[in-house]
């Protein structure tokens, strides 16, 4: 199943897991912080996204002794997909620079 391009919510979830393993609430807070509150995930949206990511093997559950909180980590496949997406964003920005579009953004 082709997961690219990533939706903004999925992008930020993978971004939050790229630095360390996190549980759901932690992912929620990190996404809000990283996106400057532009993306606010409710529990329904968050766990729906986590379910898709688990099914597509982009993330995996980390075994812990904690019963009520489950931690998640980025898999190698998830890391590769996320990297591809970052490269896509980089290419888009470089193209915009080349065409001299929105110069104040990267002046």
């Amino acid at each position: 199943m082709n997961v690219l391009p990533l939706t903004p919510a999925i992008f930020y979830i993978l971004l939050s897991l790229s630095t360390k393993n996190r549980h759901g609430y932690d992912i929620m807070k990190t996404v809000a912080l990283d996106s400057a509150n532009k993306i606010k995930l409710g529990p329904g949206t968050l766990y729906g996204a986590i379910k898709r990511l688990l099914e597509n093997k982009l993330i995996a559950e980390v075994k812990t002794s904690h019963r009520r909180r489950k931690y998640y980590r980025l898999t190698q496949k998830g890391r590769d997909i996320f990297t591809q997406e970052l490269i896509r964003y980089k290419e888009a920005v470089e193209l915009a620079k080349k065409k001299k579009l929105f110069i104040p953004l990267y002046a």
Binding site: H23, G24, Y25, M28, P43, G44, L46, Y47, I50, K51, R67, R68, R69, K70
Partner: peptide, 17 residues
């Protein structure tokens, strides 16, 4: 199936919020 997998976590996250 979804309930079995995620209900406890969702409830914990809801309580945190």
């Amino acid at each position: 199936a979804y309930q079995r997998r995620f209900n406890t976590e969702m409830l914990t996250t809801f309580n945190d919020l």
